[in-house]
Design a binder for these strands. Structure first.
Lengths: 200, 200
DNA sequence: GCAGATTCTTGCAGTCACTGCAAACTATTA
DNA sequence: TAATAGTTTGCAGTGACTGCAAGAATCTGC
């Protein structure tokens, strides 16, 4: 019979993955994300470079250390949201919780700054976000029917987060969470009440 | 006295750049964007590989062959838009014209499909778009004052385009231009009239 | 039209990311 | 414990990209 989750093999894999993401984040913070080499990360985690690339398709994925649980729980929540809850509200609740988790781990500041400061990290984050978006959009379309609106809501939610973090970085007057709130408000109520009134 | 724009040197540089982007696009279409090598592109344009990398920071930039004029004209238009024109309308007019130009060049289909089909191209495009976004947001903030709203409008406009193209790719029932129109409508009027009414 | 300053191109050597393959190793299962 | 299936590793190779210094072109003032 298969041991599935509990087996030694499974545990070792998790350990190795954790060791790699930890080492990757630590080294990236120490030396700057673009000057860490895959070799250093592998060495710090005490595995071969080849093994490192068995775990991650790109060096950047290790530094991003994305938590696959986030996407899964988001999909779950979209599917099981109460009928009376409007779709953007669902997205907002999801975003709020993810944000909350990240803050709790103290990661938003450290990792967030790291990511925003490095084009290659940003690029890979967006790469994986766009993949997520596709899945989230599909789930939301399932609920509300309108594919365009579903896709826009999901993408706009992502945009709201990004804009909030960028804005917070530019002038840290307000907390990211407040900025995200405000952004969602704007998206919900409309970005422009006078749209096309002024077009020739 | 400097010859500036008209000199032979300047003309040759433009020629070389054009030869490189042309070769890059042609080869990418022929063999798929991920299997073209920098060496092939350089050879087709009859320059050394080293020279290729003097012109473009990444292989992908040559394939994208972005037109810097588009950004400049957009910035210009934001700055000089009539006072009675609402900001999202301005963005919509800009997007519509860029789209129109691309269609006219017959590039939207060829290059657009190429880009959408290749993760690495897509992300290089987004990376450069994010740079544009920053500049466009700054210009729009200048006009309307509210940085959050300006940033959201610019980012959302970009999102609208991307979503429209993706959706068009999924099921080409409707023209990209119509999808963009619909997306802007939704963004203008609000993605979700019932926002937060259903939150516990 | 020419010498000298400026700018481009090029080859070369080197670093690093990433891949496929096959051998060695280790957990799992019967 | 023996067979099996999954994991790790070294190795060799491809390709992106960079810095450097030499050579070739263009441009400038005269």
């Amino acid at each position: 019979m298969s041991q599935g989750e509990g087996g030694l093999r499974e545990r070792k894999k998790l350990q190795t993955r954790a060791a790699l993401t930890d080492a990757a984040l630590r080294l990236a913070l120490e030396k700057g994300p673009d000057s860490v080499t895959a070799e250093e990360i592998a060495e710090a985690a005490d595995v071969s470079v080849r093994t490192f690339f068995n775990y991650f398709p790109h060096k950047e994925y290790a530094i991003l250390g994305r938590n696959p649980a986030h996407l899964e729980s988001a999909l779950e929540r979209i599917a099981t949201a109460p009928a009376e809850q409007s779709p953007l509200t669902t997205m907002w609740l999801i975003v709020r919780d993810v944000l909350h988790d990240l803050m709790a781990e103290g990661e938003l500041s450290r990792r967030g700054e790291l990511i925003m400061g490095s084009p290659s990290l940003l690029y890979h984050l967006m790469l994986s976000s766009m993949d997520d978006e596709r899945q989230l959009s599909a789930a939301l379309t399932e609920r509300i029917g309108d594919p365009l609106r579903a896709r826009l809501i999901v993408s706009a939610a992502g945009t709201a987060c990004r804009v909030a973090v960028e804005l917070h970085k530019d002038g840290p007057d307000s907390a990211p969470a407040d900025l995200v709130d405000a952004a969602f408000q704007l998206l919900a109520q409309g970005l422009d009440p006078d749209y096309q009134k002024g077009s020739s």
